[in-house]
């Protein structure tokens, strides 16, 4: 389904490994939820009917069972597709180029407010990845948060996180 990663193919991690990993994580989630459900009570409770843990318990059994089968399938799967790279180095670095700035953006929101952070994020992204002109990037970077500001704060009166700049302007 995925084009074969011929030109940029240093093997990082195989599909099989990731498949096993995800099945394992889901299995652990099932165990945690299952244990917690039992402590909540998973049977009939007087005056309450089926207890709070009744439904989650059933579901965690289902999730656990399904994950176990998925895990076994993934471990036993030795065909060519499973040996393929899950992600190529180029692909991974591209993803990281988006993921890390996005995480930094969310973190920054708490300090400088969502509008300033958005401006920096949009302009930065445009310059770094799109090779857009600096002026154009700055223009789009300022315009979008401004539009959003008026839309959310003034129009729909939905307060978004604001930082020192907005406080200075009286918000």
């Amino acid at each position: 389904m995925h084009e074969s990663p011929s030109d940029d193919a240093p093997l990082l991690v195989s599909r099989r490994a990731v498949d096993i990993f995800v099945a394992l994580v889901l299995l652990i989630i099932a165990l945690v939820i299952g244990t917690e459900s039992v402590s909540l009570g998973h049977g009939w409770m007087e005056g309450v009917g089926p207890a709070a843990g009744f439904f989650p318990f059933g579901i965690s059994v289902l999730l656990g069972g399904a994950s176990l089968i998925n895990l076994i399938n993934a471990v036993r799967n030795r065909d060519a597709e499973s040996q393929e790279d899950f992600v190529t180095l180029t692909g991974l670095s591209r993803i990281m180029f988006v993921l890390l700035p996005l995480a930094a953006y969310i973190a920054a929101t708490q300090f400088i407010g969502i509008y300033v952070a958005s401006a920096i994020f949009i302009a930065g992204f445009m310059i770094a990845f799109g090779h857009n002109g600096i002026l154009k990037s700055l223009l789009v970077g300022t315009a979008v948060p401004l539009v959003l500001f008026f839309m959310f704060e003034r129009w729909f009166l939905v307060p978004l996180p604001k930082g020192p700049l907005e406080a200075l302007l009286g918000y």
Partner: peptide, 17 residues
């Protein structure tokens, strides 16, 4: 994390007040 933001908001609010 959340409380930091709201503390600043509260401080800002208090400052304005």
């Amino acid at each position: 994390m959340r409380s930091f933001r709201s503390t600043t908001a509260a401080l800002a609010g208090a400052a304005i007040a």
